[in-house]
Structure formats: C-alpha cells, structure tokens
C-alpha cells in the first residue's frame, strides 16, 4: 500500500511502498503540489526506479517554477536506493 498525505502547509507525507503499480496515482496526486515543499519520507518503506522517477519529476517541476523539494526522514534502505541511482547528489535529501 502507498499513501500521500498533503498537509495544509503544502508539505507532503509519503508512506508505504512506492512501486510501479502506484506510480501513476502518485503522479496524479502530486500534480497540484507547488512552491517550496518538504516531503516527509519517514514512513516510506520501499521505493523502486518507478518511484524514484515520480520524485525526480516532481523535483524538476518545482525547481523549474522557482520552488523546490526537500526529502526528509528517509530510512537507510530508501536512502541507499537514491545513492545507487546517483540522485543523492542531485536531490535535496536531509
């Protein structure tokens, strides 16, 4: 199961498993996010390349419109997936 909660302050909370079977729904949910966004990844258990692409496209869109994306609270196994794909150097991960 995967879930995105949109906070009233525009920030996000991601939980569960962001795999290819949930990627399209995630893209639809994230369409309306804008500005400077903090995504809390503490409850994110799994992410694949399909999920990484969702995050990457959100980062690009926010960055292009003058905003930004910060990813916080990642557990080590999620962080390693970003490291293996070289995106830890590109994305703002805290």
């Amino acid at each position: 199961m995967f879930d995105i909660k949109l906070g009233t302050n525009g920030n996000l909370s991601l939980s569960g498993r962001l795999d290819a079977s949930h990627a399209d729904r995630a893209v639809q949910t994230l369409k309306h996010v804008s500005g400077e966004v903090i995504a809390d990844c503490e409850a994110l258990d799994y992410i694949s390349s399909a999920g990484i692409t969702v995050i990457l496209e959100l980062h690009k869109r926010l960055h292009a419109s003058g905003g930004g994306l910060r990813l916080v609270g990642m557990n080590p196994k999620i962080r390693t997936v970003f490291v293996y794909t070289g995106l830890d150097k590109v994305l703002n991960i805290e």
């Binding site: 694949s48 390349s49 399909a50 990484i52 997936v81 794909t85 150097k89």
Partner: peptide, 17 residues
Amino acid sequence: LTLPLEAQSRGGRGIHL
C-alpha cells in the same frame, strides 16, 4: 550519473539498480 539532471535519460535506472 555525472551528467546534469536535465541531460540524463529517463530510462535505465531500474536495470542500473
């Protein structure tokens, strides 16, 4: 992975993993 993000292809990350 050394290219700027905009210049990287979208594909290939899964097989890279």
